[in-house]
Design a protein around this nucleic acid. Structure first.
Lengths: 193, 193
DNA sequence: GTCTATACACAGATAGAC
DNA sequence: GTCTATCTGTGTATAGAC
């Protein structure tokens, strides 16, 4: 019961973070959405920052589970694994399930850095992606001129790429078309091949 | 005197918007930075939203002036013009001079949409870039498979690309190297050619 | 753990004198 | 137009009863 309620809280936080971001999200609306009093919410999580951190931990866990699924196929090409991750990331964002935080907010940064579950998850994901990136550069599918960290950051940035939302707002393309276009832009570039 | 003071206000707003964003920026700190009382600030601009709008109008004017300079060279290739625009955008962001607004905040959106100077500037920039995009697709340098609007949004998104800030924070590369890497990723893609 | 009620701080905006 | 002082709303967090 207790865990189920906390899961409902995190779901609400996740949605609000995806919708309006950390600053615009209020603890009042989270409590109202879950259907409990604000004071009760503070019995589960000690601060607004910890609410956001819990949502980030959960999305990181989702990402790791997705990576587990990908690694079940041992003879997939590293490039395809990376594309699959980028696609998943963008689909999560388009579905309004990708919490995104301001990179500057220092109180939030401190909470996240001190959160072991989050940092461990981030390290794990980064290492697994890093292995695929170097493998893909070794087999010649990813440009070897780019530092691996630049490739990694570029992939992470797909989680908050505003192009997805703009194209969705235009209502000119389907979800799949949007993802395909941005994925193509990311890996193939704007220039013709 | 009056215009000079308003210009100082807009400069401060521009910097704060680039540093911490609209929500985190406070009117108090803007007034303190300029060195006037908050009430005096409200004699110049009727609301916080209008402050942000003024900063956006100014950066749009800067962009248009840059486009004017580019168009002075009549025999430049459209692809190179687009690259030059993307480069300029990223340099402005890296220098902490690119105000960036949340796309969701509705009160801000309303103010911007009702601001004729801003909307005219946005349309002008979009049309000029749109012409280069279609020209570059016609001459085979930009991928013809992408809708021009997707290319346009992708270029606009460079103004708030978090990869720039992350790479800067890593302190591994110079400003020029960072811009070159992200520019290459944008136009050439992650995949090797 | 859940609630109602409230403390506390801060930010946007305004009043009114000069 | 500039100032000091203030209003007002709202948001995070807590007190204390049950």
């Amino acid at each position: 019961m207790h865990l189920a309620r906390e899961d409902a809280i995190i779901s609400a936080v996740n949605r609000f973070l995806a919708e309006k971001g950390f600053d615009a999200m209020t603890v009042d609306e989270v409590a109202a959405d879950v259907g409990i009093a604000k004071a009760s919410l503070y019995k589960h999580f000690p601060s607004k920052e910890d609410l956001a951190a819990a949502a980030m931990v959960r999305v990181m866990d989702r990402a790791r589970a997705f990576l587990d699924g990908l690694q079940a196929d041992p003879n997939a090409r590293p490039l395809d694994q990376l594309k699959a991750v980028a696609r998943w990331t963008m689909e999560v964002q388009l579905d309004g399930e990708m919490p995104s935080l301001p990179s500057e907010n220092s109180s939030l940064r401190t909470t996240l850095i001190n959160n072991k579950a989050y940092m461990d998850g981030l390290m794990d994901v980064s290492e697994r992606l890093g292995a695929w990136i170097t493998a893909a550069q070794a087999d010649g599918s990813i440009s070897p001129a780019l530092p691996p960290i630049a490739v990694l950051y570029t992939l992470y940035a797909r989680a908050c790429d505003p192009v997805l939302g703009f194209l969705k707002m235009s209502e000119l393309y389907t979800r799949e078309q949007i993802v395909d276009m941005v994925l193509s832009t990311c890996f193939e570039g704007l220039r013709a091949r």
